[in-house]
Design a protein around this nucleic acid. Structure first.
Length: 261
DNA sequence: CAAATTGTTTAGCT
DNA sequence: CAGCTAAACAATTT
């Protein structure tokens, strides 16, 4: 479960706020507030805070338990019962460790901060930084792949191959796509809007989608070799100082070149 | 239907 | 100690 889904969870818990659960490790306590930070779902009870991580396969159900599955936790509120499955539940003492400015779904998210962070990591690949929860908390493999495609970036592009403008666009679009993911998920049209994730053909050129483990994290990336070429920035917009005397790309409008005998 | 997958932590190595 | 890899965990989808 990625960040936007956790925000939706906080909303789905609103009916249970300020009421007590009759079951679970926090039996008898009132639910005071729910929060999300990246992929963390935080339930604040009167005396106890629970941090829930759904990892890859976790889920929750409200008033509709799964058959033949033992929930990890059940919370029974006056207005409904919530069942949690295959998730990691941890009691936490404080929120001090959370930096909300790196949470891609938070109102406190800071694009300039992420840009500054990326500029300090010239040797990191796009696919690795996008999944880094200290930089883009809440981004998972789906968001990673879709943002790479939207920005026409090869997953294995090293950050020092990007112009400042491209770094800025990457960060800003990651945030923008997280908000879109949220909106589309709520409207039940998320998968319909995937452009590259689990697709066989590139929606732009119709070419095959490459699927390969990429980066240090070795999670699968889905990308188009034609529309997300490696080192695109060097070809299309060389950085000052890296320009050679024999640029690879000719100016587009130059009648002399085609008119010559 | 075997394989992949919306993910992270930890142990154990070099 | 840093950096890495494999293992463990878990359940649905293709």
């Amino acid at each position: 479960m990625e960040g936007p889904s956790i925000v939706i969870a906080t909303e789905e818990f609103k009916p249970f706020l300020n009421t007590r659960t009759k079951t679970g490790p926090v039996k008898g306590q009132k639910l005071v507030r729910t929060r999300s930070w990246g992929k963390h779902f935080i339930l604040e009870f009167e005396k106890t805070m629970l941090r829930i991580h759904f990892l890859m396969f976790g889920s929750y159900r409200i008033d509709n338990p799964r058959e033949n599955r033992t929930p990890k936790m059940v919370l029974t509120f006056p207005k409904g019962t919530v069942y949690f499955y295959s998730c990691a539940i941890k009691e936490i003492e404080t929120l001090e460790n959370y930096d909300w400015s790196v949470d891609t779904m938070s109102p406190k998210w800071s694009t300039p901060k992420a840009v500054r962070t990326l500029k300090k990591l010239p040797n990191e690949m796009v696919c690795d930084v996008l999944m880094n929860q200290d930089i883009f908390a809440g981004v998972g493999n789906i968001i990673k792949n879709e943002v790479q495609f939207r920005q026409r970036l090869h997953p294995e592009t090293k950050l020092d191959q990007l112009t400042d403008k491209q770094i800025k666009a990457l960060v800003a679009d990651t945030r923008a796509y997280c908000l879109l993911f949220y909106k589309w998920k709520k409207a039940n049209v998320l998968k319909r809007n995937w452009q590259i994730m689990r697709k066989r053909k590139c929606p732009l050129c119709g070419g095959p989608v490459t699927k390969k483990h990429t980066g240090k994290l070795q999670r699968i990336s889905h990308w188009c070799r034609r529309d997300q070429p490696l080192n695109r920035s060097l070809i299309r917009s060389p950085r000052p100082g890296k320009q050679t005397k024999h640029p690879r790309s000719r100016p587009r409008e130059s009648p002399a070149l085609t008119a010559a005998p």
